[in-house]
Computed example of a mutant assay.
Amino acid sequence: MISEKPSNRDLSQLSALLAVRSQPTSPSGKQTKKAITPANDNKPAREQLAWPALERLAYRGDYRRLFALRHWKNMVFPGSEIEAPEENNLDPETTIEVRPSEAELLAAIGWKAIDKERWHFTNEIVNVYDPKDCTPTHQKNKNDGIDTQLGDLLFRDGRLIEWGKTGKGSSLRPVERPRGPKGGTSPGRSDAAVWAYLKLRGAVASPLTAKPYSKPLSGEPAIGDFYSPLPREAPSTKDRHGRFGAKEGRAMLQELGVDGTIPFERLPLPATRCADGLVSGPQWVGGVKKPKPLGEISAAAGREPEFVRQVEVLDYVNHLRRHLGRHALVLDMAITDATAKEIGVAMGQAPAYAEKRGPSLIDAAIDALIKLDETARGEFVPVEEKIAA
């Protein structure tokens, strides 16, 4: 309760005393108490969503329009998209192995981990060690340098060269190398599996044994001779060696019996058949070969500059704006923090009706974008709704 006669030197309650004195007195002569309020009448602002249109679509589960709206923002503001990290694109701390680690360094000087705790700076679980005194020793080496021994740690001229010994007495040296791939590696096909594949009998002896139609539509061959064999060219001043024709080469191979048409037993030249064997190493490529992915081909061709892609995207956005018309203005406001009411007012609706009309304007603009742009269309499986019994 405020005193009627405050100290003249204490001015901390001056505003409260003036507020009490300014109140009218009651008929009984007693002053009524009133809560003292601050001089300003500011009220807390109403919470507003950061992206109202997107969060409204997410709340409704309208993933088709949600995908198209994000696509429009990524095209209008190139580089604003959030890229998820690739599966193998890890941090250097994950892909690089450094030895010795923190625990190995402290264990080398006699410190022992006794517990774990959460470090409030990084919110990570770290070890708690039991410290132990360790006195370094110094001595000269054969190169007139200084070797410092601190527990199991050996420093030569200030550089760590050894941090322990293995069970067999080998020196453990500090290393920094790429971490090995996680998981086991594929052992590959064994020789027995390769032989089993080679001994398989095909369903057809040869593709040439396939029977044609019994009643062909035409007597002409279905596939013509689109490639004419190269003729023989005699040596000339431009080419002193000339060129061996394709027909002459085939005739020579047939004469020697190495074109595959003559069985091995009837070769004109004496030959010895060796036992079948497998070539060691990865030279054997028999079996089903996987096709080369398109990513490797495009990567070999090189990646276009980033500014070229942005210029092409902005040019395509201008093309879409010409076809979208007033829908483009709605989409531009829908990717900001504008509410549905503000979008409705901007499109000419009355303030009382704009809040109800705004969501339908946004949906209509997104549908127009999906109809024009194929990349704004996504395939989404509808969520099954459970109906209570």
Rank of each mutant, 00 (worst) to 15 (best):
A338M: 02
A334N: 01
P216D: 05
S218P: 14
T272E: 14
K5D: 15
R240L: 11
R177C: 08
D130A: 03
P270T: 07
M252K: 01
V194F: 12
R240V: 11
T272V: 13
M347R: 02
G257R: 01
R9W: 12
G295W: 14
K112L: 06
L253E: 00
N42H: 05
R60D: 13
Y316C: 12
A192C: 06
H138I: 13
L150E: 04
T37W: 08
T166D: 03
G184V: 05
I362V: 14
A203H: 15
G344H: 04
R240P: 10
K30A: 13
L267N: 07
I96K: 09
Q31Y: 08
V258Y: 07
L90W: 12
A365P: 04
L172I: 07
K165V: 05
I387C: 07
D337H: 02
P174W: 00
R159C: 08
S22Q: 13
T261A: 03
A50W: 08
L153Y: 08
D62S: 08
M252Q: 08
D337I: 01
T261C: 02
T94P: 00
Q13F: 12
R56F: 03
G169Q: 04
I161K: 06
L217Y: 15
L256D: 05
A68L: 07
W163L: 01
F77Q: 10
R322D: 07
R179A: 12
L200P: 02
N8I: 12
T375M: 08
L160D: 01
D152C: 05
V98S: 10
A234F: 10
T261H: 01
V288S: 13
L230I: 14
P92W: 03
G202E: 07
P221N: 10
G110D: 03
Y59S: 02
